[in-house]
Design a binder for these strands. Structure first.
Ligand SMILES: [Mn+2]
Ligand SMILES: [Mn+2]
Ligand SMILES: [Zn+2]
Ligand SMILES: [Zn+2]
Lengths: 136, 136
DNA sequence: TAACCTTTGCAATCAAGTTGCAAAGGTACA
DNA sequence: TGTACCTTTGCAACTTGATTGCAAAGGTTA
């Protein structure tokens, strides 16, 4: 995972500092989207603000995308190869109201929604809520 | 608006106290979704916590629905007649990243998304972001 | 009037996110 | 090797939206 993380950072032109490699490895390790708090717990040797700034950097360089799932904690998930976070790269997310896990539904790209005249879409945050397979 | 508010509260079995009628009138008056802070400013004679609890009550009784638009402030908009906030009653929302206004796209019901096996949907929060007509 | 339930105002608290600042690391070059 | 310079990190403080405990105010009923 360390290896994959380093390669990914290189391909996105992000300086691969130890903290960054750790955070990205952590995100790569688990399929689920993780919050700042989640990462803080796992990477207890790193400071919250460092992880926070790392995530901001990752977002800026399209290493990860963020999901506002309504839990009160923004979650982060690794972007797919070639993702540019443009509308055509986006997908739905699923938030389990029981276990609070947020999943990327990579097989469900978001559709084109008809907007009122002169409205321009540039991003989206699509979250479906309910119970996941483990909680049904 | 006061009249409409009172009728709506009656139809949803919510005790029409002065504060509640005021809050609902305020929400009915403007098409845009409003945050607790927005309402606090308009209804400067009412206390924040009273407005807050009013909104919670409204949500519980399907008088309003809430939208997490990623602005850090939950917005509230009046439910349509007959709305039960079930998946088939939901619609997309549009958040303008320039003026921070959130619009209900009432003409855009949300589609059925294919979920992984044994995932059950019960709610959704779908937000499209970009520039509204005034900000384009 | 007394008992009782609901609603409201006020102050305090919580939690997530964010920032200023100085120390630590690294690199380039005289 | 020493110094200037830029980046990254840790720590502590702060900001802000949301939420809650509690007592006072309103209303209803017996
Ligand atoms: Mn995702
Ligand atoms: Mn709406
Ligand atoms: Zn679950
Ligand atoms: Zn706008």
């Amino acid at each position: 995972m360390i290896d994959k993380a380093e390669k990914m950072l290189a391909s996105r032109n992000v300086n691969p500092t130890p903290t960054r490699v750790l955070v990205l490895s952590c995100l790569l390790k688990d399929a689920r989207a993780q919050s700042l708090k989640d990462l803080e717990v796992t990477l207890y040797n790193s400071d919250r603000s460092s992880i926070f700034r790392t995530l901001k950097t990752f977002e800026e360089f399209k290493v990860v995308h963020s999901i506002e799932d309504g839990s009160g904690r923004v979650k982060y998930a690794v972007c797919e190869e070639g993702c540019n976070c443009d509308p055509e790269d986006l997908h739905y997310h699923f938030y389990c109201t029981n276990c609070s896990i947020t999943y990327c539904l990579l097989d469900s790209p978001i559709p084109t929604v008809k907007l009122p005249a002169n409205f321009k879409m540039s991003q989206a945050n699509m979250v479906i809520k309910g119970l996941c397979d483990k909680c049904t």
